[in-house]
Design a binder for these strands. Sequence first.
DNA 1: TCTTTTTACTTCAAGTATAAAGTTTTAAAT
DNA 2: ATTTAAAACTTTATACTTGAAGTAAAAAGA
Lengths: 152, 152
Amino acid sequence: MSASDGLSRRRLRTWLRLLRIARRTENHLREFLRVNYDTTLPRFDVAAALYRVGKPVKMSKLSQMLLVSNGNATTVVDRLEKDGLVMREPSAEDKRVVHVSLTQTGRAWFKELADAHEAEVNMLFADLGHDDLSTIRDLMRRLKGEADDKHV
Amino acid sequence: MSASDGLSRRRLRTWLRLLRIARRTENHLREFLRVNYDTTLPRFDVAAALYRVGKPVKMSKLSQMLLVSNGNATTVVDRLEKDGLVMREPSAEDKRVVHVSLTQTGRAWFKELADAHEAEVNMLFADLGHDDLSTIRDLMRRLKGEADDKHV
DNA sequence: TCTTTTTACTTCAAGTATAAAGTTTTAAAT
DNA sequence: ATTTAAAACTTTATACTTGAAGTAAAAAGA
């Protein structure tokens, strides 16, 4: 089985297709957040992760959830903290650990964004019905094991 | 139909799934290129686009192909040019236009990467067969119209 | 013609991202 | 108890990315 047989080539093309869709959708949502809410995708992603968990999250856990480096998480949290949208708390048990969470302001801010964001995604994916979504879920699950998910 | 009915919520979850797969795969390939070939994903992407076209490409066309800003394309091409992997040529007909193409060195360099890159993707997508790939293609095609593809 | 608008590209400032090095704290192993 | 190793963050250097401003050339309009 050559490294470039038909199946291998098709898998490559499929990856490029997925990447393209992801970039287009991200670009659209970035623009949407910028124009309508004067904010950015990384900020939104951090807030979404914190909102989803609903309680203080370790910095390292946060970067794992978002699949970004620790240093990156630090920077984005820095900015959100400066804007009063998130807060850091040193852990009591382990002095190395820092917990992050949304402030009240941050929670209110995110709630407003979340609905608009969902509506926008709903519009972008409008051509996909329940069956399609199930199909995608199953396909993505099969890729899950292979990709590097550092250690979640 | 509320902005947050079941279907809307499922579309959002599906988007997050796609984004997650894309990021994991990108992270894996970034690491792969860094460790084995001491290069980066943006450089690879530019080279791949130029290689694919096979003849000099306008800067603006390049950034459209990659779905990145013009300024970004300029920067990455700058670096590749400094390394002797690509070359710029001013257009004869239109003095505003700049054509970019791979140098001989660049072409040889990319060829080596391309096979390894395809093999790596082939490994990551090993669980998907011909039918699955066709299914994904059809699904992605249906999203195509909705997303912002600036003006390709 | 000549003014205005559009197009192509680069430059700039700010934000985002990584990898690697550094600091502090905890856990493990003598 | 001490040393060693590992873990959690932050900081640093460098690269990437965007959006906007700037420059130059071409096209459109008056």
